[in-house]
């Protein structure tokens, strides 16, 4: 599993570049590097459905980002300025929070099953009943469209709500100049 570690290191570096670079277009491209690495890692952990969806969503996300940046500005003028009091306070607050969060996560992760060996108590039922009851060969599709179809309905609701929000914000009719 050495390739998973290599991709995780690459993603961490790219994420740091995305947060710290001055040019916003370069930041968005670094974000795209992280997203496509996630897609490749989905293939490596045997999740082809996720990889397909991640690639499509990643392309659309980058297009939206680039469209917004082309209409506005591509220089992050807050990078390289002198630090103000609020900024230093937020960095100190974040460091304390990150420390406590890492300790808590470390203790919580020890309760989880080790990597590559999940419990699969519920999933074994879904795998056994997927083909006879739901009738689909792809078990992920069985879960989202049959066993947990109400979750998918909620997902569609959230998606349409966000589309209504975007349409209301980006409208040009009836807006005061």
């Amino acid at each position: 599993m050495i390739e998973l570690y290599l991709f995780l290191i690459f993603m961490t570096v790219a994420a740091f570049v995305a947060t710290e670079i001055k040019d916003l277009l370069a930041a968005v491209i670094s974000l795209g590097a992280v997203g496509f690495s996630v897609a490749i890692m989905f293939i490596l952990v045997q999740a082809p459905d996720l990889a397909i969806v991640q690639i499509v969503v990643e392309v659309v996300t980058i297009i939206i980002f680039v469209a917004v940046i082309f209409r506005t500005t591509h220089v992050d003028e807050t990078i390289g300025k002198k630090l103000t009091g609020t900024h230093i306070l937020s960095i100190v607050f974040f460091s304390f929070f990150a420390l406590f969060f890492l300790v808590a996560v470390f203790r919580a992760l020890q309760e989880l099953p080790a990597f590559g060996n999940p419990t699969m108590k519920v999933a074994s039922e879904y795998i056994r009943l997927g083909l006879p009851k739901a009738g689909g060969a792809n078990l992920v599709a069985d879960v989202i469209l049959d066993f947990r179809a109400l979750d998918t309905l909620g997902e569609a609701t959230v998606l349409f709500t966000s589309v209504i929000g975007v349409a209301a914000l980006m409208r040009s009719i009836g807006r005061k100049k």
């Binding site: 969503v57 996300t61 999940p118 998918t152 966000s162 929000g165």
Partner: peptide, 24 residues
């Protein structure tokens, strides 16, 4: 395990919606 994959499939699409809303 197919269950985390099904949950994440939902989350990825919702992430696109929230990102588009925040950017607008």
């Amino acid at each position: 395990d197919p269950i985390p994959q099904a949950l994440v499939l939902t989350t990825i699409v919702i992430a696109l919606g929230t990102t588009a809303l925040m950017l607008s």
